[in-house]
């Protein structure tokens, strides 16, 4: 199968004000419909890389190309449009708007994009919540949900505008084991239906879902390994394979 690049990262560097170099000269392609996982030791620059690719942060130098557009050169208005239309984002701490209900949280990016009528957005949000097992919680306040439920609301919100890429930063980091698996299952299911996913994680269980793992060390890509698409029935073999590679990387 020919891999089609959806995002190209060229010579990307990130340095903070105190001269602390986090990323240095990263070159990378993110492929369409792939489930890419970024791993590495703490402080290696995983989340920074994700934020810079996803326009949550601006690189110090280098380029991020999406559909022939250099995202590092976009105006505030164009960047906002890119965020609402092309990407979805899931965080470790959910980052839901707490004074909005579950349904409102999911609908908000849809209302903002204006590509569908209000009614269509609400219907899609309800469908997504039903798909994630949250249909009965639609009108509840966020504070009344468990961590796993909150993360599933975040997934629904990230998918409302059918983004081309879904970014996830440690999505299972704040969840118990069962909830974590539920969230990973949802992500895998979406990927299997063609959704491009880029995920940062420390969690081996999460990494097993990937068909590509990037290993970051000292601000550079230290390893880049492809795997066959996730198959739950082959979990043991895959676990051994991934673990062996990660150990080789110094994990």
């Amino acid at each position: 199968m020919i891999e089609k690049s959806i995002i190209q990262v060229k010579n990307l560097s990130k340095r903070y004000d105190d001269n602390n170099q986090i990323l240095e000269g990263i070159d990378l392609d993110i492929f369409e419909s792939a489930f890419t996982v970024i791993m590495g030791p703490s402080g290696a620059g995983k989340s920074t890389l994700l934020q810079n690719i996803s326009t949550m942060d601006q690189p110090t130098s280098g380029h991020v190309i999406f559909e022939d557009q250099d995202l590092t050169k976009l105006s505030d208005k164009s960047l906002s449009r890119f965020r609402r239309k092309e990407i979805g984002f899931i965080f470790q701490s959910f980052n839901l708007i707490e004074h909005l209900s579950v349904l409102e949280n999911v609908c908000l990016p849809g209302f903002l994009l204006k590509s569908k009528t209000k009614k269509q957005v609400i219907q899609r949000a309800k469908d997504l919540l039903t798909g994630l097992g949250l249909e009965t919680h639609a009108n509840q306040a966020i504070n009344h949900l468990s961590g796993g439920q909150k993360q599933r609301v975040a997934i629904a919100r990230s998918l409302i505008n059918q983004p081309k890429i879904l970014f996830a930063d440690e999505p299972t980091g704040a969840l118990d084991s069962t909830s974590g698996i539920e969230v990973l299952d949802n992500l895998t299911l979406n990927n299997q239906s063609g959704q491009t996913i880029v995920m940062v994680t420390h969690d081996l269980k999460a990494a097993l879902r990937a068909d590509r793992i990037l290993f970051i060390k000292d601000g550079q890509i230290y390893g880049d390994r492809r795997f066959t698409p996730y198959d739950a029935s082959q979990l043991k073999t895959r676990r051994a394979e991934v673990e062996a590679w990660l150990l080789e990387m110094g994990w």
Binding site: D76, R81, F89, I97, L108, P109, L112
Partner: peptide, 16 residues
Amino acid sequence: KRQLALKKMLGFTNVQ
């Protein structure tokens, strides 16, 4: 600030 950052992430512009 956090909520404003979150709204920016969802695609709200500074002007909005």
